[in-house]
């Protein structure tokens, strides 16, 4: 299964292809560089039950360790809340795309537009369109896919991989974030 190839083969990206995330450091570096990042979770985070627990853990860690707000689409907010996730907003997938293209949008916190968006939990067909829409309408925003399938329209995406490999990669990412966070905490305490 070639990594850098659209999961649905006919989903040709265009003239610019996403870079493949090969190790957690890349993601962490991208996220840490961002001034105003955001996470968007789609409904497959819950309907694809084989991935749900890992997604919830990843998103929780990103939120708690790096203070990244979470938006969910469709009808999953209540279920995410009951799993202890702190959801900052509920939008339709097209509605959030519409907000992200608007340079004057105040954002969830009043601090304006986001400069990095991590997306996870969409069907491939809809996800592809979201990435394409963002590429076209929000060129200033860096877009990252955290799903185990290659999305050419993102800036950064995992390559196509089996779920088990993706889970291992995601666990590695979670470990890295947590250890960095603990390390920073210790440094702060030391200072």
């Amino acid at each position: 299964m070639p990594a850098q190839e659209a999961w649905i083969r006919s989903e040709m990206g265009g003239t610019r292809q996403a870079l493949v995330i090969t190790k957690p450091d890349v993601l962490i570096s991208l996220i840490k560089k961002a001034k105003h990042p955001l996470i968007i979770i789609g409904h497959e985070s819950l309907t694809d039950s084989s991935r749900t627990d890992v997604i919830i853990r990843l998103v929780s860690v990103l939120h708690e360790s790096l203070n990244i707000p979470i938006i969910c689409t469709s009808h999953i907010a209540g279920q995410l809340l009951s799993r202890g996730l702190d959801v900052s907003g509920v939008y339709g997938s097209m509605e959030i795309l519409d907000r992200l293209r608007d340079p004057t949008w105040e954002g969830l916190d009043g601090n304006g537009q986001y400069d990095l968006v991590c997306i996870i939990g969409f069907s491939y067909a809809l996800g592809s369109l979201l990435f394409s829409g963002l590429k076209q309408n929000a060129p200033q925003t860096k877009i990252i896919s955290l799903d185990p399938r290659y999305y050419p329209h993102a800036h950064w995406s995992y390559g196509n991989m089996k779920h088990i490999t993706w889970k291992e990669e995601t666990e590695r990412l979670i470990d890295h974030i947590q250890s960095e966070h603990m390390h920073q905490g210790e440094e702060k305490a030391h200072v």
Partner: peptide, 9 residues
Amino acid sequence: PLYIPFCDL
């Protein structure tokens, strides 16, 4: 209108 291109071309 919010445009969501199928491809770039």
